[in-house]
């Protein structure tokens, strides 16, 4: 099997090598990929949308239809993870560990023993527990608000600098994942429950599609943001810029919530009980 695979891969590489001789040279401004529509995007993008970052302009305006369904694919992937892994029944076996908060003494409660649920003095810790580390705990907690501010900056400044809904959303999701890694999954799911991530992911996509359908209702094409000029009381060019911002916010919400959702399902194998 391995030898067969190796020969197949070598053949594949030979075909690729052969075809590389008929590709246009690297960095050629007159290559077929760099002509036609992309020249128009570069020349007229700034004039038509008032967005200096052409990638954002093409992403959310000229190719908005494409991006909408990419976001749908991500939502579908999040839902697929949920259906593949989520188990609502609790695992009956194994003992549970509780830590006395003031002294750090660990209690092992065998199966059937009374557990100090909702106690102010004891907190539950994971079965594969790691020693409590004050530095990691507090440092991660201090970093999270600044990282979230940066994520919002990336989303809202995406018109003028690299960034946008996808990047900012992933950074925002990563902050919650950082909390879940540095503390434990239970306290993080109390702050950001599964229900919230499911709601935010659909709401983000709804904002995207809703912006598109609002244009349709105002008598223009789907995702043609210049129709929003009447609603927002600006000229059509600025309306396209604002429409891109709305769409990016929707994408950011959806992507961040889905990243968190997939992490919850993977790290706890669907039980939401004990995490990484």
């Amino acid at each position: 099997m391995k030898r067969f695979a190796f020969i197949g891969v070598l053949l594949f590489g030979a075909v690729l090598l052969y075809s590389s001789f008929s590709f246009p040279p690297l960095g050629d401004p007159h290559a077929p990929a760099n002509r036609h529509v992309s020249d128009d995007y570069i020349r007229d993008g700034m004039k038509e949308t008032a967005v200096p970052n052409l990638v954002t302009a093409v992403l959310a305006d000229y190719r908005g239809y494409d991006t909408m369904f990419e976001a749908t694919v991500i939502l579908a992937a999040g839902i697929a993870c949920f259906f593949l892994l989520r188990r609502y029944r609790r695992k009956p076996a194994q003992h549970r560990l509780y830590r006395h908060i003031d002294t750090g003494v660990i209690l092992i409660i065998e199966q059937g023993g009374k557990e100090p649920v909702d106690s102010k003095e004891f907190e539950r810790i994971d079965y594969h527990w790691v020693p409590f580390d004050l530095v990691v705990n507090k440092a991660a907690g201090l970093m999270v608000p600044f990282l979230q501010l940066f994520a919002l900056y990336v989303i809202f400044h995406g018109h003028h600098s690299p960034g946008g809904g996808f990047q900012g959303g992933v950074i925002f999701g990563a902050t919650v994942i950082l909390l879940a890694i540095s503390r434990d999954l239970r306290s993080t799911t109390r702050l950001f429950p599964e229900r919230t991530s499911a709601f935010l992911s659909s709401a983000g996509l709804f904002i995207y599609a809703g912006t598109g359908f609002a244009c349709l209702l105002l008598g223009s094409n789907l995702l043609d943001y210049s129709a929003l000029a009447r609603l927002l009381a600006v000229d059509p060019v600025m309306a396209r810029s604002h429409g891109i911002l709305l769409v990016e916010i929707g994408v950011g919400m959806a992507v961040s919530a889905i990243m968190i959702w997939i992490y919850y399902n993977l790290a706890s194998a669907g039980r939401y009980d004990e995490g990484l």
Binding site: A33, N34, V37, S38, Y41, I42, G45, L54, V55, A57, V58, L59, R63, D66, T67, E70, V73, I74, A77, G78, A80, C81, L84, L85, F166, V170, V255, I258, M259, I262, N265, L266, A269
Partner: peptide, 28 residues
């Protein structure tokens, strides 16, 4: 050329979503 950048930007985010589904299948 901004057009391939746009297409690949969304492809990266979709690739992490498919990675999540693939790993969920592996865990299952």
């Amino acid at each position: 050329n901004p057009l391939p950048h746009v297409l690949m930007l969304t492809a990266i985010v979709v690739s992490v979503a498919t990675l999540g589904v693939a790993l969920a299948l592996a865990v299952g």
